[in-house]
Design a protein around this nucleic acid. Structure first.
Lengths: 180, 180
DNA sequence: GCGATCATGTAAGAGGTTACATGATTGT
DNA sequence: ACAATCATGTAACCTCTTACATGATCGC
């Protein structure tokens, strides 16, 4: 019944209490690498979660016309999250615009296609360097019971993904260079 | 103005004329690895593309209450597709349920988390084997001007992705095994 | 005759983006 | 004084999924 976004919010709140604004910041790349949502969606979802009793909040005086609301996980919210974590994920369809462009790339000018992939390669190499810098802040993998294990393991997934992407882009550039 | 789904349909039609039903079949995994959509969405999008003059169709007598419509790319559709191919892709936010579960995995029972990743590992290894079988049907990479280059290059992306995923799952299983 | 495949469509609703709306505090 | 950051919310719109609706043809 709770949406995946709902669980994403619960996962953030499991680390400590946060305002909606802070949750939005936590879910924005490149700070974290697990899910994204805009503040408009987060505020709406927090209202649903609060109605369902999975989170609670204290209203405190803050900037702006409304009070700020500091949300925290309730016992029910924690239970729901723990149950959800080990359930198999729903298969999401792959939708990757670059792969789609690749599928149609035979139609286009090879020089322009090569430029596209050279650009993408640069993006992935930059992101990889950034993730590598972040990895250096850890002294090896934390214990799986440590919250920091979640950060390390997702970072590790990001590292593998960027390496795979960069390698694929490099292969594409090589293929297109050979044909020019 | 045309949505990404619209270009996906144009990319399929660039290979030859198809009915909406055939386009849906072409876009269904694991036959192809580039984009997915249900037939309901495809029929609606085809109507928009036809209105915009990017595709045309012949109605022919076919099964069912309506005539079947065989769609083909128009000259304008081909031009629009060629231009779109080499434009940089819009950044899509990463939304990966397994990564999210990983982020919250420190809360759950390590034995159950390990089971989750062992299961996912199996899925990725199976898909990898399937892609490898498909790769063997090619005799090396086709020329970048050949339509089959599109198939080969997207398959290559899929191969790299499944290898990266499988490796990450294996690492997760090892981490969780060590802590048990 | 029966089930699988071929074939096209509509409608309701969930999930997500973009734009609009407001305004205090903090640092320069 | 000005800009950035903190802070919450609503409304319109787009994309995608699920369910409903229909029915002919082909192979067994």
């Amino acid at each position: 019944m709770t949406s995946t976004l709902g669980y994403a919010i619960l996962a953030v709140l499991a680390r400590g209490e946060r305002t909606g604004y802070e949750i939005a910041a936590a879910m924005r790349r490149p700070v974290s690498y697990f899910w994204t949502a805009r503040h408009s969606q987060i505020h709406a979802e927090l209202q649903k979660l609060a109605t369902g009793g999975l989170v609670a909040f204290d209203a405190r005086h803050g900037p702006g016309p409304q009070d700020k609301k500091v949300y925290r996980l309730t016992a029910e919210g924690g239970d729901a999250l723990r149950v959800w974590v080990t359930e198999p994920p729903r298969e999401r369809p792959e939708r990757d615009e670059l792969v789609l462009k690749t599928y149609a790339s035979w139609l286009a000018d090879p020089g322009l296609v090569r430029r596209l992939f050279a650009e993408q390669l640069r993006v992935h190499e930059e992101r990889l360097a950034e993730y590598e810098r972040e990895e250096e802040l850890f002294e090896g993998p934390p214990d799986p019971g440590d919250p920091r294990f979640g950060n390390y393991a997702t970072l590790r997934c990001g590292l593998g993904y960027e390496r795979h992407r960069a390698e694929w882009c490099r292969w594409m550039v090589a293929q297109l260079s050979a044909s020019l």
